[in-house]
Design a protein around this nucleic acid. Sequence first.
DNA 1: AAGTGGTCTAGACCACGAA
DNA 2: TCGTGGTCTAGACCACTTA
Lengths: 263, 263
Amino acid sequence: MVGNIPIYIQVYTKMKRAIEEERYRAGEKMPSETELEKMYGVSRITIRKAIDLLKNDGYVYVKQGLGTIVASASMYNSNYVTSFTDGLRAAGYVPSAKDITISHALIPAAIAHAMDVPEDRDMICVQRLQMADGKPIAIMSNYILPELVPGLDKEETAEFISLYRYLEEHYNIFINTSRDFITARTADLSQAHLLQVPVGFPLIYVIRVSFMDGKPVLGDMVYINAHMYEFSFNCVGKAPHLITETDVDGVGPQKIYTNMDKR
Amino acid sequence: MVGNIPIYIQVYTKMKRAIEEERYRAGEKMPSETELEKMYGVSRITIRKAIDLLKNDGYVYVKQGLGTIVASASMYNSNYVTSFTDGLRAAGYVPSAKDITISHALIPAAIAHAMDVPEDRDMICVQRLQMADGKPIAIMSNYILPELVPGLDKEETAEFISLYRYLEEHYNIFINTSRDFITARTADLSQAHLLQVPVGFPLIYVIRVSFMDGKPVLGDMVYINAHMYEFSFNCVGKAPHLITETDVDGVGPQKIYTNMDKR
DNA sequence: AAGTGGTCTAGACCACGAA
DNA sequence: TCGTGGTCTAGACCACTTA
């Protein structure tokens, strides 16, 4: 093992690699946790953390009393934070940006609400036309709190393709949580023109709020050509909300928060 | 503590309750893990599992060297598996179903692909018009492997509102993982008629595959009135994909799977 | 320097599934 | 009954943040 990197990450990486190379095949059982302990020379809790990561990636599923079973490749997925640019790249597109503009603007109500910011708040607005393989795919508007990015409105605009990466490198802003609100719209005249589709064409409409350390720092409004793109999300496990008043002293019925919202 | 339920769930429930009742306020630090150990009389690893669950729910965020901080209420969310019906209910709608039909049908290509099933596979198809507060909100088609639900095609159809619950109670099928593919479409003539919207109206188009123990058992195709609904999803943390060939012996560059897909 | 969360160990007992 | 994963403990050292 290497000194620097946590052991469970190293074990996770090796096990993942083993699955990708089909040294363990889909549907087969992995070695038991006790065996894996011996194979890697680490304690069981470390093995379990590695398996947890594999579970999150959809590589394996686990059944008590039976074992850890390798999932089929079609189940590989994860819900980690990614930028749209990285998402495009991972989906097989070559991303680029066109017509980047930076300006001050009032925040749209939909974003203000999602970011928990007053509606008349002045924001830095970065707009661009996102290209994929040279074709327009999305109209993106990012709204940033001005105090976090001093001098950004005076920057050369041509140089950044990924806003996330730019914020990390120039302003030490590291997004570690995000929330997407996804629904559908149809293209109006200006959107249709920019995206080179007919008016009325279906678009995915996304409001995304990005957080650093629990505080909202970035709000995005994105219109995506629905024929070039789709989102995929995994849901794993049932919510542990089963405890009622009679089970645990002083704990009553729980509010349930889900991944669907009334509008 | 109660015997039956795992201690970390009990601790999690109590801490969650404390946050909801604002005994810990947004932005404030929670007691340190050592303090929580003493408060609840359990070991640190148990406290950490409880905090992990709170993190997944968006109730807290954690910074090494600083502490565990309570998030604002707007961040509460989770990506647990829920049925559409439960989702509607949690969003504040009163759900009901109309025009339920059960039939044998060939599986649509989009679902066959997502479920990893041959395209000419015979399936049980359950279709219904999903209502919310008495208004049509979605057209739902569920495709189930016939061998898993013997006799379903002969069932009384009026009785089930939530298919998930029906499968649990009658066929011992417990969905524990699902994956949604979300994009946008516009209403055609028949969809418009059913949903009582104009032709060309924006619809959220969802393909959902539901898994039990790693095996796909249910494929859904859903068209949702986009003006009545939106999906929300959380992404937490960066992917631990940073290990390259030079770091860990025998481990090369990693494929990256993300939550976005080329179409 | 002090306090926090992050990682890790060795060992224990329990709950579940299959033979 | 046996092997599996699920839960839990007590204790240790490290890495990071703040003062």
